[in-house]
């Protein structure tokens, strides 16, 4: 990826993603943190597009931005007395150490390794190929994911359903 557009796009999106991720850590107010997290998700979706993964990018927007963040907002709103403070526990220092170590190690390894990449260019179209793969090669995981989603949905409903009330 050597054209100017890709390079500019990568750096901009990387800055957006990491910047808002850092802001999520630092900001105190939980609602604002979720809003920034959404920005971060959108940045990741943009990065997917630079990697010519259009289907995954759109799915990222649909699921992470449209669904999971809304769920989080709901959870924050439905727990009003829990406080909206996004503060750290006493794990702060070990957390920083561990995370720093992790970042350092992975970065070092990825820089150190010879990835022997073959430049193959981006994909022409991913959606149909992914669809075929899902329903052909990966049909069992696909079905399992469906079952998992169903189980998760039922579980979530059962968990939050107030005891002693019935749907009319």
């Amino acid at each position: 990826m050597e054209d100017t557009g890709s390079i500019v796009a990568f750096w901009l999106l990387a800055a957006l993603t990491l910047g808002s991720a850092l802001a999520v850590v630092l900001i105190r107010d939980l609602i604002r943190a979720v809003v920034l997290l959404i920005t971060s998700f959108l940045g990741v979706a943009g990065l997917y597009i630079t990697l010519s993964a259009d289907f995954v990018a759109v799915v990222q927007v649909l699921i992470y931005v449209g669904a999971i963040s809304v769920l989080m907002l709901f959870a924050i709103m439905l727990t009003p007395r829990a406080g909206r403070n996004n503060a750290e526990t006493f794990f702060r220092i070990p957390g920083i150490l561990l995370a720093g170590l992790m970042a350092f190690t992975i970065s070092l390894v990825s820089l150190d390794t010879d990835w022997a990449v073959v430049e193959r260019g981006g994909f022409e179209e991913t959606a149909s190929a992914i669809g075929e793969a899902l329903l052909d090669k990966y049909v069992l995981p696909f079905e399992l994911a469906a079952v998992l989603l169903l189980v998760a949905m039922l579980g979530a409903i059962l968990l939050v359903h107030p005891e002693g009330t019935d749907e009319e």
């Binding site: 609602i31 809003v35 959404i38 259009d54 289907f55 759109v58 799915v59 927007v61 649909l62 931005v65 449209g66 669904a67 963040s69 809304v70 907002l73 709103m77 179209e125 959606a127």
Partner: peptide
């Protein structure tokens, strides 16, 4: 003219809910 146009439409319109939530909140 994206090749995932229909999905794009659905995904983008789902951002609406965030905007509405933010303004209401």
């Amino acid at each position: 003219d994206l090749n995932v146009g229909v999905l794009f439409v659905i995904a983008i319109t789902s951002i609406n809910s965030i905007a509405i939530f933010i303004s209401g909140w």
